[in-house]
Design a protein around this nucleic acid. Structure first.
Lengths: 121, 121
DNA sequence: GATATATGTAGACTCCTATCTACATGACAG
DNA sequence: CTGTCATGTAGATAGGAGTCTACATATATC
């Protein structure tokens, strides 16, 4: 099928846009990508996934799935980290909307949110 | 309620184990934590969440949710990264079981797995 | 076969982040 | 009210991960 250069490019482009041509690399994707990356839905999901993508934070969340709630020092015992690091991690999880915190006297208790349970299921 | 020291500790511990006492910091958590952290279920979930916790990888996955499949150079156009970095990211997503790859001629096409769709939903 | 295109691989670099130590705060016990 | 325990905050540091450049491979076109 001998077509001229520019015509072939146009054909490929049309195929891309209609979705029935496997040819590639017409670059109309930056705009769509930017729209996605700027959406709050995307930013929130990224924040949550980033928070869950750390071994010790995921461990804390994983234990919270069964325990209804845990205090900071119990999470410290489970992870073997210093209390400072645990505090940092739990603040990050709270900021991401994956846990809620409740203070009772000296102790700080954490519970999973429905968001977290939804992601892990 | 004046109880002796050791007796109070025992009481708190019992309360912890039965789950109806908010007292804290009896450290029987290391064992459970290790069991979780060693489980393949946990390792796999961690690998997937870590893979999704990067802005550009999540962007690629996000676009794949609507497009059924995209080739590497389209993902490159969307992210604005070099092809080398895109290749690295997509290999990571594939290794985590979040995308499958299909080669057709010069082009490498990626599709989401049901795992990925399940996590994002 | 020669050239161009799409992708993979290797190595180097930079920046982020997980972690620690040290100090501060707040609550409870004696 | 003084000491201890649980936690938070600040600052410093080391390791890892994301990124790039440069080179290699494979496919399609002329």
């Amino acid at each position: 099928m001998p077509t001229s250069g520019s015509l072939r490019v146009l054909g490929e482009r049309l195929g891309r846009l209609t979705g029935d041509d496997p040819n590639c690399c017409v670059a109309e994707y930056e705009g769509e990508a930017r729209a996605i990356a700027d959406s709050s839905e995307f930013r929130d999901a990224l924040k949550q996934l980033r928070a869950l993508g750390d071994e010790n934070r995921l461990l804390a969340v994983w234990m919270l799935r069964r325990k209804t709630e845990l205090c900071a020092c119990e999470i410290q015992a489970a992870t073997g980290l210093t209390h400072a690091t645990v505090s940092h991690h739990m603040a990050l999880l709270e900021e991401a909307g994956l846990v809620t915190a409740r203070r009772q006297g000296k102790w700080q208790y954490y519970q999973l949110t429905s968001d977290a349970r939804g992601i892990l299921r």
